[in-house]
Amino acid sequence: MAAVQWTDSRVEVAGATLHLSRAGEGKPVLVLHHETGTLDRLPFYEALASRFDVLLPHHPGYSRSPRPDWMRSVRDVAVVYRGLLSELQVRDVALVGLGFGGWIAAEMASMAPADVSRLVLVGPMGIKPSQGDILDLAITGYIDYARAGFHDQKAFDRVYGAEPSTDQLEMWDICREMSFRIAWKPYMYSQTLPHLLAAVRAPALVVWGEDDRIVPSSAAKRYLEALPNARLQTIAGCGHCVDMEQPDTLAKLIIDFIGRE
């Protein structure tokens, strides 16, 4: 497989400045990363870009995108991304939301149900789990929190190194601060989203790592109840960060799901 060529740019949209990485050709796929920010390149992104036109923005206030001080909610992020798609004239997009990014994707789908080709939510936050609570960033150490996203700690080591760099720790702190600014209370979910999702007719795939210690899997059932056209796929031997822990498995699932006419 030839290495995909990424283009990095800065896009001004709806009062925010976004760092956008884009690569590949085919159906447009918007990939939305975790609350821990994102590394620039990951095997999962490469795999998707080998089949699709992948748009990977860094959330406002996370990783390479500067913080818009005015922003107050995850729904604000979703609106900014709707603006981004509009600016870029990308229509009929497939949304792939990873954890916290899954919440953003679900909000986006609820805003413009007709403009979503496929919805993929991987261990999404955004709905209050019926049992258990979403792991609280505020009382968990940086490395402990990031490691909690992985079932296999060797997978964590492969992505971040066994001892993540101080730059990485600092970035986690910046991302954490932004998560507090937009998702503090109620913590990491919306009380209205489950109702709004009823309008989303697009086929939806909800993926859950069997050993998700960040978002309790009881939230999966609530997503399935809220989305009219969704099915659940569980990944064995995997934690919350399926994209980083089992990138090939997840990419294959998504390629099959989105690629299907």
Binding site: L137, A138, E170, F180
Partner: peptide, 24 residues
């Protein structure tokens, strides 16, 4: 735990780097 006494956003951004090193 240090992150309890200095949650993200509470401290001065100029101390961020020193703090995350301490907290880890």
């Amino acid at each position: 735990h240090p992150v309890w006494s200095t949650p993200s956003g509470y401290g001065s951004p100029s101390n961020r780097r020193a703090f995350v090193e301490f907290a880890s």
